[in-house]
Amino acid sequence: MRRKRDRHTITEFDVFRADIRPCIGCNHCGMGGPCVQKDDYENKMKGSIRETDMIVFVMPVYYHNWPAQLKAVIDRFYSFTTELTYMHKKTVLLTAAWDDTDTVFSVVKAYYERICEYMEFYDCGAVYGDGCGTPSMTRGTKHPQAPYELGKSI
């Protein structure tokens, strides 16, 4: 979905409902060509990623990790890794978990930081919403305001 918002154009992809297949490691793309899979990633998302200034990853935490659907998108970056790396995209991570333990985001955070480093993305910040399992739980935390404040700071 593409929409105008204030001074920005936002393109939104619901990777949980999209047809995005995992990378099959065939190396047909050679890290810089078309992917053999003709799904929503190759036909819609890849072009939008090229055009955008910022990628915002928004996700729930599943068993202390990234959801498979979003991980599949990142794995498919392989088909244009070199090009994407030279673009130095800005990124933000917005994530929430039911759990509120100290370690709930350790794997999520480590992976995000590593992807930013490897892809030469510029990390503009993250919101780690612990204890946000339901809307009523979330309202009782400091987290509802945090994405707004992060957005204003960018």
Rank of each mutant, 00 (worst) to 15 (best):
37 Q>W: 15
124 C>M: 13
98 W>C: 13
12 E>C: 12
55 I>S: 10
103 T>G: 03
15 V>Y: 07
29 C>H: 11
23 C>T: 01
127 V>N: 00
133 G>A: 04
58 V>E: 13
56 V>M: 07
110 A>F: 10
100 D>W: 05
23 C>L: 00
127 V>Y: 00
100 D>N: 10
34 P>W: 13
4 K>Y: 01
35 C>G: 06
135 P>D: 04
149 E>I: 15
69 Q>E: 15
14 D>Y: 03
13 F>H: 11
121 F>T: 03
114 R>I: 06
10 I>C: 04
127 V>P: 00
135 P>G: 01
122 Y>R: 09
24 I>V: 13
113 E>A: 06
129 G>Y: 11
39 D>E: 01
142 K>I: 13
37 Q>G: 11
94 L>K: 05
79 S>L: 00
59 M>P: 03
151 G>E: 09
4 K>M: 04
47 G>P: 08
121 F>N: 01
13 F>D: 08
130 D>Y: 07
4 K>I: 04
35 C>W: 10
144 P>L: 05
138 T>H: 01
136 S>T: 14
95 T>L: 01
32 G>C: 10
27 N>T: 14
102 D>I: 04
47 G>W: 11
117 E>T: 03
139 R>N: 09
50 R>W: 13
97 A>N: 01
54 M>V: 07
143 H>R: 01
142 K>W: 07
73 V>D: 12
81 T>K: 04
16 F>H: 05
133 G>S: 02
34 P>M: 15
41 Y>A: 10
